[in-house]
Design a protein around this nucleic acid. Structure first.
Lengths: 205, 205
DNA sequence: AAATATACTTAACAGTGTTAATTTTTCAAA
DNA sequence: TTTGAAAAATTAACACTGTTAAGTATATTT
């Protein structure tokens, strides 16, 4: 029993090692430029060994995302302290923008690449941390509505609007599309202004 | 002179042929799954011949985007008829969502892939139709503000907010992320509701 | 010590983008 | 009309990619 348990533990350690090194590489060079062989070299195993631990490259990416979501949740840890729902929503948006701009490669994997979703479908699995973040968003919107701070509307509608807005900002920024609208050096500032504008606008007069 | 002109014309025709067939393939299978060899087979040339007409695969994609923007502008051709700026902005948003959902592969190339922007940087060129669309957006916002239909704010800020919002909706939808918020069959409807909500919300009371 | 199960590696396949060298075609001058 | 240069297209090749099948060590059990 203890020997089989120790072996299982070793296996998990190798899994973790692969994920860690993969994530480092994804962050350094971007998902598409990282090959299975490169990861294998980093973990000092042959390329094919990785296939004993993961179904394919997509699955490796999939598990890396989970750690990305956890990182994101850490950013939101101080959120509970803010009592005003609108203020809380605002801060959540600011955190989202900061996360995206600080870790663009993580963001890319989690929200832009299609690979992890394919893996998710293949596996029939879920993303607990990811769903958790969305639930948090919906709850804040619901809270704000209950307190009469927002014009009544379907919670999903407003949540989708807010999420889409911050995602749009980050993903356009990451893909250098916002340079077409304002000079590159003003992009970050204007992104925050846009978020401020939305929050101010949606707050019930 | 006329003979050299005809040769030039022939060259342009081959260029167009390559772009047409590439676009078809990109739409059918997605950028990443289309290889230079596949394109070559379609146009009945050897793979290396394409390199006589384009610097690399990214440059092919880049020129395909231009046609995507033109397609998009066509969708907006009826916009001038709407006199109310807010209503015009709303319809522009609706067109944007429809375009993204109707031609997700085009949208992917134009706004999600990073490849065309790399080509753009390498070439030092611009995207006339793309810039044109952004200018149109800014002008509508400016118009709405001039007519006192929006709370005064920096035009770029509001334009960025609106663009980010619709881009966020489309790109999250394309990458199957919105399924996490509402059931798949409700995604499209809720997207439109979110857009409606934004426009209603931003309209000065 | 022999047999079996586990962990890992080597070799290989079919594909990728791209370059250099080589061939075929086109067309003006002799 | 043949010759020679210029243009256009091709073949061969390189260094990669993700992934699978077959083979080889290394433990563990009998």
């Amino acid at each position: 029993m203890s020997i089989v348990a120790r072996k299982e533990k070793q296996k998990q350690e190798i899994r973790s090692l692969i994920l860690e090194e993969s994530m480092k590489l994804f962050v350094e060079e971007g998902f598409n430029k990282v090959s299975v062989r490169k990861i294998a070299e980093r973990v000092q195993y042959s390329p094919t060994t990785l296939y004993l631990y993961f179904k394919d490259k997509n699955e490796i990416l999939f598990y890396c995302c989970e750690s990305g979501f956890k990182k994101m949740l850490e950013h939101n840890i101080t959120l509970g302290l803010i009592s005003d729902p609108i203020e809380r929503l605002h801060q959540m948006g600011v955190n989202y923008l900061n996360f995206g701009l600080e870790y663009p490669e993580y963001y890319d994997l989690m929200f832009i690449q299609e690979a992890p979703m394919s893996a998710l479908i293949d596996m029939g699995a879920g993303w607990s941390s990811g769903d958790q973040a969305l639930e948090a968003l919906k709850m804040i919107v619901q809270d704000a509505m209950d307190k009469g701070l927002l014009v009544p509307a379907k919670v999903e509608t407003v949540a989708m609007a807010v999420w889409s807005m911050v995602h749009g900002l980050v993903s356009l920024a990451i893909r250098q599309r916002l340079d077409k609208l304002v000079p590159a050096e003003d992009v970050e500032k204007t992104m925050h202004e846009s978020l401020d504008w939305l929050l101010k606008t949606m707050k019930k007069a």
